[in-house]
Design a protein around this nucleic acid. Sequence first.
DNA 1: ATGAAAGCGCTAACAA
DNA 2: TTGTTAGCGCTTTCAT
Lengths: 355, 355
Amino acid sequence: MHTYAKISWDMRRKNITVKDIARKLNLHHTTVSRALRNHPDVNSKTRARVLKTAKGLGYFPNVFAANLRNNRSSTIGVIVPVLHHDFFSSIVAEITNMAAAVGLSVLICQSNENINQELQNVNALISNRVAGMVASISQFSRNSDHFNRVMRLGIPLVFFDRVSDRTDASKVIIDYQLGAFDLVSHLISIGCTRIAHVGGPQQVVPAQLRFEGYKAALLKHGLPFREEYVIFGDFEAEYGLACARRLLSLPQKPDAIFAVNDQVALGVMIHLISEGIRIPEDIAIAGFDNDKVAQFTSPTLTSVDANSRQISRKVIDLLLRQINSIAATPVTEQVKPNLIVRQSTTRKDMQQIFS
Amino acid sequence: MHTYAKISWDMRRKNITVKDIARKLNLHHTTVSRALRNHPDVNSKTRARVLKTAKGLGYFPNVFAANLRNNRSSTIGVIVPVLHHDFFSSIVAEITNMAAAVGLSVLICQSNENINQELQNVNALISNRVAGMVASISQFSRNSDHFNRVMRLGIPLVFFDRVSDRTDASKVIIDYQLGAFDLVSHLISIGCTRIAHVGGPQQVVPAQLRFEGYKAALLKHGLPFREEYVIFGDFEAEYGLACARRLLSLPQKPDAIFAVNDQVALGVMIHLISEGIRIPEDIAIAGFDNDKVAQFTSPTLTSVDANSRQISRKVIDLLLRQINSIAATPVTEQVKPNLIVRQSTTRKDMQQIFS
DNA sequence: ATGAAAGCGCTAACAA
DNA sequence: TTGTTAGCGCTTTCAT
């Protein structure tokens, strides 16, 4: 029903304990324990002696004993689909730092987009008695039953980005629609009127939201929505290349292309450049996700940053509030992404400075 | 001397224990414990009943109690300078997967290139009684005294890439020199004879090793080493741009440029393209690190992959051997990087297929 | 095959 | 201010 570690470490050396310190100082080990934890009821001179000998003996508190005794833990668990991905690695990095700042350790798990592994991760974290969990679910985990027991055990849980549809957990989501809206509004503001959208898979929510934001911006600014300017597909560069070709074959070419992400935008750019089309003079290009590549393309690529710092901040805040029982009711917070304007969408009247 | 968690989780619910299961089945809790761990001395019928009730009650073993009792743990700790970095995030990702496969959990720590934080990480991991540690030290940690206590406690320790100079710990290092040698040999094999090197900071070992490999390859193939073809600086794209300018101003321009990493190579490429120089027809370009961008540049960029999978594999193997006391003496293993040939160094006679 | 006893290291409650 | 007692949940003896 649950996995036991097949491998473990038999400690070679007897560890120093509070009793060792106590013996050395002719004190009772409880006094030592109190001294170590800055309990007020302890003579400052005694405390000093305890701290000194503890250091001298190379004492390290045994968290297992403390956690067992206190029935608590100072570890949180984080589950992500993959770690080797710009977005997730920066979120995990930030969460780890923020957790460390308040004395929490972080157990990291990857589902590898596999719902079964996600279940295993959940079980492992429960067995590790984590103080709380943070999760971004795998692409195919519409069903989130494996988190039921987390809730049932009362373990604080916060989803982010790829959230489950359950209503009993807190969530931090990214307002992709707003991001797309801002981006397309920006394209309009620099004078584009025929804005095409190279969208992602139609059934994927973040892709849908970007499309919604695109439509909303057109509507808001009185531009017509044109079927022929919208293509749905995937998240890869090759696909962007193919779409660019298709868009260029239209009788009335677009004057801007908004790609569902930076990889696709890159594909689009490569095709346009190979066709001798100037960016942004002939066609402006914008991506999404603010991938590291966006700063290194030529021209540099306008994109939308998901604001991972703010996401991490909100995730940790929500989690800590739950851990400290400040908040019991689940809340959903939205993070507003940031538009990052770069050369690929420079205003017509500013273009000379980049030439 | 060490930090105590300021924040923790008071478990709301009484957890199900072996005693709860025992009570329900009129058994002794030790029998239940045995059944749960597939101890041979237990009636298979009894075991079945135990397993069933355990599942029914939603039992999860308390690892704190087990670990305290057994004086062992099934968690390993990983310390990296930063997580938000292609190389480290892929290593951590792979280590996490490999660890999970053998039932080990992973505690992740970042030093943020700060030696003080590195010390804190070490202490936190010791307090968490990790079964072993994996570390890539911060750029400025030439001194590795903070790992002394890890060794003294007999905690298995494996360094990788950024290794400490201590002789009592196992290490997995990357043969950067060989990687550079292979790369430059490749450049020579496609007909380049005037190969420039845009190097990294002169005091950084991996940069030195690449330079050594560069020189060795020239020597091996009877090409002259020319001072004016070598520049030392940093790891950023801007620097590559500046160096490219400088190299182009030489009376005899190079016909190939080997950059210390892909970011720098990117800077070089951007400058060359802006000058109308064709890659690789006029000048071939090669980077190092096999950054994700290398696949998306135009032309795609030849690079050297550090082989993170193999590094992770070796790190985990070494660690597990130590954890299982198979190996006591520290060993140092070298990983051979892989040359990834792409369009930026295509042979003269093959170039047409990419046009 | 099962039960009883003991203890891992720590800390809260109570006593002195 | 310090010491005593007890127990967190588990597993390893040893006894039945």
